[in-house]
Design a protein around this nucleic acid. Sequence first.
DNA 1: CTTTAAAGCTAAGCTACTTAGCCAACGTTG
DNA 2: CAACGTTGGCTAAGTAGCTTAGCTTTAAAG
Lengths: 191, 191
Amino acid sequence: MPRVGLNQQTVVREAARLADEVGFQQLTLAALASRLGVALPSLYKHVRGADALAQKLAALATAELATEMTTAAVGRSGGDALRAMADAYRDYALRHPGRYPATQRVPDPADPEHVEAGERAVGAIFAVLRGYGLTGDDAVDATRALRSALHGFVTLEAAGGFGLPRDVDRSYHQLVASMDISFRSWPRTGG
Amino acid sequence: MPRVGLNQQTVVREAARLADEVGFQQLTLAALASRLGVALPSLYKHVRGADALAQKLAALATAELATEMTTAAVGRSGGDALRAMADAYRDYALRHPGRYPATQRVPDPADPEHVEAGERAVGAIFAVLRGYGLTGDDAVDATRALRSALHGFVTLEAAGGFGLPRDVDRSYHQLVASMDISFRSWPRTGG
DNA sequence: CTTTAAAGCTAAGCTACTTAGCCAACGTTG
DNA sequence: CAACGTTGGCTAAGTAGCTTAGCTTTAAAG
């Protein structure tokens, strides 16, 4: 039995590719093993099991998403930064339909890279909101609002939840424009 | 073997209760059968299988949610209606953590009750937005925005995605207040 | 060359879903 | 009230997926 030469990184990366092809829910250890050319139990030499694989995939996807969000906002501010970041967010979800759902897993405190990736993603949003003068409790509320809007939209879109023929790109831009208006006149609490 | 006297409705209703207790993902035919006091394969006399059960549960939950949204908005308009409906939406998701995820399934065209329930839910949002003077393409965009915001928020909340200590109720109210502002100054397209 | 850690394997068992086919309870009808 | 047919229950058996145990062989290190 010649060795294939796997390690945790190769396994997780291939899982990410496979998930994008077949969907996050359809990502199975059997399919992954066959794709990597090994028997299923061999995967256990590299990941603790199906749940641990999902967690590592979450860490990978969250890191990628955080990077794309940060990159998009660099050198911009205000509505410009908001639009660029929102577009990057949705682009990532559309380009990586299998990885995106993984990013919703709450970071595992035992995985520093995962925690750091989550902080980077939230931090990117925080930075954009600072450009609107939002800080403290207001920034927390606004961050939750923005995350909710973006996540909700791409989730509904991916689920096929937008039945009507109206152009989805346009609806997304309108949503982002409305968030821009909201942030400029955010109902302040003085936090 | 004395008969238990099940039918599709009893099975689906019990599935809904069970889902709220253990979670939508943990809803299993085995657990449901044991709860109903029958052997697992007996369920197949009432539902076509696990996927069909999930679909029927989706129809039930969507109908319940649509009713609560509609009821909440009755006799109100504008921001008043928006707040009442949004509160009803989140209340439902919090009271029924197992049913709520089921509502995200796109209605089965072969199930008229499911289709009708979906139309009622979207119609309820449409009606509220008409109070803001939003119609046509603007109403479609605004409906998608509102659905995205509400769905995204309750989904992130249920997933434990809001790590910071800031009060979640308050964040939700701020989100709804910001949507109110958005709808009043919606970036019109003239649709 | 020997030794050893680790990467692969097979075998076996678990849970969950599904299908097939049997039997008994119940409602209907003569 | 007896016979009958429908149907709701059952057991048995097969599939897919995850996991553990324990063996073998590769390949690197001494």
